[in-house]
């Protein structure tokens, strides 16, 4: 069960971040030239792959599983709660939804104001913006892949497990978003980012609670079945919170 959750969570989280990175690459490519934008994005992807490789191996090799699960569980809980909280506030209308079209227009406008820098086909402003954008968006993905993958244990899907399986989910998302970006040639504004963030937030919270609790010494009564119970409980909490906050927001507006 945890193998499938690992793959799905990694895929969804990566899709959200890759959609945001694609907006930056498109804006950079259109205004500063594709060569600089694509080289910057490719180099950032290599750096992210190295981070996953080095830290993934180091964590699973040098840290005992109980301690790893305590630390990783804590981080996953914090991260999952931040994502879930943001998506609840967005659903309730208390926080603006992520608008890729608007971000794209702003990026294009900002980048068009800067005069060309560099020689030949290489534009260093374009390179830097694409590199930084992909690296920063990808760091969250790398973090999920490393932490989730290193704690997931040996249960696998299609011969892959742990960090390898989480990486496969992230790479699948990268390929899918890249193909969509190449075909459409514009930001993927219609991707239901908030729903995906809500789902990933729930999964990270459920696994964070389970692993963090195990690391602290808890023996879960239903074994891994507790993860499902946690998912359902947190899902009901999230859904309920959206409705309560939405009603509160409407009451405030009409008052």
């Amino acid at each position: 069960m945890s193998g499938l959750f690992l793959l799905t969570a990694s895929f969804l989280a990566s899709s959200v971040e890759m959609v945001e990175a694609l907006t930056i690459i498109l804006a950079t490519g259109i205004t500063r030239g594709w060569r600089s934008a694509l080289i910057g994005a490719a180099l950032a992807s290599v750096v992210l792959a190295l981070i996953i490789l080095v830290f993934g191996a180091a964590l699973t090799t040098f840290i005992p599983l109980d301690l790893l699960r305590l630390i990783v569980g804590g981080f996953l809980l914090i991260f999952g709660m931040q994502w879930l909280r943001k998506s609840i506030l967005r659903y309730a209308g208390l926080k603006a939804l992520h608008d890729e079209d608007r971000i794209f227009r702003e990026e294009v406008s900002e980048l068009s104001k800067v005069s060309p820098s560099g020689t030949g086909a290489m534009d260093w402003v374009g390179f830097t913006v694409a590199f930084k954008g992909v690296l920063l968006e990808g760091l969250e993905v790398a973090f999920i892949v490393i932490t989730f993958g290193s704690s997931a244990g040996s249960e696998g899907v299609g011969g892959l497990s742990g960090v390898g399986l989480a990486t496969a989910g992230a790479v699948a998302a990268l390929i899918l978003v890249l193909i969509a970006g190449l075909v459409l040639h514009r930001p993927l504004a219609k991707v239901p980012e908030n729903t995906m963030k809500f789902a990933v937030g729930l999964v990270l919270m459920a696994f964070g609670t389970f692993w963090g609790g195990e690391g602290a010494g808890i023996e879960w009564a239903w074994g891994e079945g507790a993860i499902l119970a946690l998912l359902v409980t947190y899902g009901a909490l999230g859904w309920g919170a959206v409705h309560v906050l939405r009603r509160e927001a409407r009451a405030t507006v009409s008052a």
């Binding site: 809980l77 709660m81 879930l84 909280r85 609840i88 506030l89 919270m205 609670t209 609790g213 602290a216 010494g217 808890i218 023996e219 879960w220 009564a221 507790a226 946690l230 409980t233 947190y234 909490l237 919170a241 906050l245």
Partner: peptide
């Protein structure tokens, strides 16, 4: 749990409840 190992099973639901309380407070 370090001081009362016998509570290791009972603390699971309490820990999850604490996480829910933290989430509600942050909202």
């Amino acid at each position: 749990i370090e001081h009362h190992a016998s509570l290791s099973e009972a603390l699971g639901p309490l820990f999850a409840a604490a996480i829910i309380v933290i989430m509600v407070i942050s909202l």
